[in-house]
Amino acid sequence: MSVAAAQLGGAQAQARALHAARPLLSHLRALESEAIHVMREVAAEFERPALLFSGGKDSIVLLRLAEKAFRPAPFPFPLMHVDTGHNFPEVIEFRDRHVRELGEHLIVASVQESIDRGRVVEEQGPRASRNQLQTVTLLDAIAEHGFDAVLGGARRDEERARAKERVFSFRDDFGQWDPKRQRPELWNLYNGRIRRGENVRVFPISNWTELDVWEYIDEEQLEVPSIYFAHERPVFRRDGMLYAWRDGAELIDGERVFSETVRYRTVGDMTCTGGVLSQARTLREVVAEIAATRVTERGETRADDRVSEAAMEDRKKAGYF
């Protein structure tokens, strides 16, 4: 208990007189409260919402926020994961265990199934990635389950197109984001009105930074998949990034597999997510590393954003998260 809180418990009037000792929410608790408010608005205003859970750090934070928003009741929405089939096995194991512990329901939308059904065609070659294909699987799953709102853990500090996106991001019946026709978003009044077939993507932690997320995970002592901490694994170097070696990966001439101590700043597909050299083995050490870093998380770890100046903007216009 803080000094101020102790004073409040003991002598309320006295504490109120002490201007300097008046308590306020820390920035992290203010962000937490804002996010809980957004989640409850979604629960109250939509018929069939869902929450995207990948097992990554941002969606782990979303689940804790959902617990804070809705307990002691169960969540008023299912969880959904768009599984590319190329995820880190450690993350999938964590995902299933975490959902089980929470006693909630998880829907897995599978990119492999989209490929098998001929909805998408898999890229070929050593640089093949299923990242683009996810969008089709996501949109199909939204249509199949009739979801009208989908909660996600995207943050505005991640990427510059995201910096312009609303907390309630309207998508037309093609799932498209139109940056020039966004609804103005004032105070904490969110407009979630849509027609059948349209949906809204909702980002409760829009205003959080990567550092906020790690500080929150540390404060709340949340469990995260082991790949977020430094560990030794076989890797190969490509385009300046360290990719995890996995069965079936193809090497290009001159590339070789070697062992390195890395951790992951983001959890995406093994095919397009690079590890970073790190010795951070505890939450505290990760927080310290993030506080001192000179490179953004997507810049350091995501091949998909290196394609062009507007890679994310283009993907979002096509219906991506």
Partner: peptide, 16 residues
């Protein structure tokens, strides 16, 4: 029972 949540502390403002 706690008087206030952890994270509530005596600050003037740390988010502007």
């Amino acid at each position: 029972m706690r008087a206030l949540l952890p994270g509530v502390r005596a600050v003037t403002l740390d988010l502007l």
